[in-house]
Write a protein that binds this DNA or RNA. Sequence first.
DNA 1: TTATATTTGGACAAAAGAGTCCGAAATCTT
DNA 2: AAGATTTCGGACTCTTTTGTCCAAATATAA
Lengths: 164, 164
Amino acid sequence: MMLSKSCIYGIQAAIYVSAHDSEEYVSISQIASELKISFHFLTKVLQQLTQAGLMISYRGPKGGVALARAAKDISLYDLVGAIDSTAIFTECLLGLPGCGVAAPCPAHDHWTKIRSELTTISRRVTLESMGKKASELNVRLSEEFRYAQSQYLDHKSAPANGHV
Amino acid sequence: MMLSKSCIYGIQAAIYVSAHDSEEYVSISQIASELKISFHFLTKVLQQLTQAGLMISYRGPKGGVALARAAKDISLYDLVGAIDSTAIFTECLLGLPGCGVAAPCPAHDHWTKIRSELTTISRRVTLESMGKKASELNVRLSEEFRYAQSQYLDHKSAPANGHV
DNA sequence: TTATATTTGGACAAAAGAGTCCGAAATCTT
DNA sequence: AAGATTTCGGACTCTTTTGTCCAAATATAA
């Protein structure tokens, strides 16, 4: 798998948060419920994002998480780096420890090219660009995702939210 | 990690085999010893490659494995597909099940581009091209790899090989 | 102050990946 | 035919990832 489950959950949650009013905290239980991710597991993933300084959290009623900076300033690269690691952007394909310019591994040249493109694009794709695409199309999230959303709204009616 | 350990071992072993005289089988214990991979583990990985039809195996003295077809006709794509899966070449970045043209996920466009490039290059890079690069440079394998090689030669002197 | 909501962080359980071991089957050599 | 070599395939262990649960800390509301 390209990215770990933790990482995918973290990205999805970050997109979800960025799509919300930045004036309020979004509770982790709400995110988990709508995205159909285990609440307790998501809790740990989001702790990684707050510890990495990408999100801020607030305890107690009306607490939750929020983006630490503007959505346009949080890239896919940041998220992946905070949860998995930046190894995917820097490591040799074959995992050979000494691989480099002096002693390139057999797939070195080709992989270097793909990797740098991967890095460039990951840095360019931000929560804002992903969120924008989402609201424009209104279908950006998979069937399952949307189903989860409707389920949630049925259950809980509009949650009373305060402000930061 | 981009590729599983099994996959990396399989690719390394395949490169090793392709660098040998195609008239003889290479024993798995020899490969494992030179590449410093657990023999028993490599055994299973290479079974996957033979079951996928990329290699052929032969039991008994002077047995081992050999490429099932010419090195130029076995690509990185084949190897990865046989051991990990082709999911990396086809799947959505965020792992959303319904992701596609009708309901693209937020990172869809960008990822599609990288993915198709990854696929193209993986199909184009073959055991031959990787092996060629290796013998040209004579440094293609990492320090560790070469160290393992010298260790092996010290220990065992030239192994007596028969022919297929 | 008391009750409630929410994140934090540690402990634990389950599943998957990585690695080890051993007996059986196939094949060569003597 | 007997013994040695080598792959095959199953069982097992160890580690990492994924997922669950609970008590403690923090904050709001009544």
